[in-house]
Amino acid sequence: MEHDPAVIAGVSLAIETVIAKAVELSPGTQSRLKQLHPLAIEIHCTQPALKIFVSVEEDGGIQIASYRETKATVSIEGTWLDFSRVATASDPAAALINGDVKISGDTAPLMQLQTIVGELDIDWEAPIVNAIGPVLGHQLAQVIRAITAASGTTHRRMKRQLSEFILEEARLSPPKPELDSFFTAVDDLVLRTDRIESRLKRIKKRAASLTGAIE
């Protein structure tokens, strides 16, 4: 199915705007991006079929387009699922190299870009201060920081307690050592079944040759 170019243009514009804002609020990022010019990445999603191009402009700006005629520096190809796995991985760079995504071209600038993105340090207090002034803005930023820190701690605690509840209290899922032992037993069984199968084949072959000799 062919996608409507206006829809792709809209999504590209939205992503571009968010990236531009993030870069603007992250001191030093624009000058680091400038050094990557003229990097152009072709992202080819095979399922659903979609091709977009991400390029670093001379001024360090990021541009996203659905059409490009000059060859990209590096091309990345995979399904939507493959790209989602990379995006949600704890180490996206390792997931990109070791996963099902195919990469061709010069990967060095791609890794540099990944490092820059990973090191983005967004000064989100600045737009708040610009909008409502330094006194109130700083106070509001402190409140947001406190809420974010508290929700982070709550999230980690909830995650640990939920995991303990599922394993220990409700026993909805077996513990990891038990699972490992089960999988080892399954592997062992598969191995032994294979051995029996090949032994049976050998016996059948010998029986057939003995029957032929008697006749």
């Binding site: 206006a6 243009a9 514009l13 490009r68």
Partner: peptide, 15 residues
Amino acid sequence: GLHRLWKRFTIELSA
């Protein structure tokens, strides 16, 4: 606001 997106794609096609 769609005219901006139509023009954006036209600029892409211009290469």
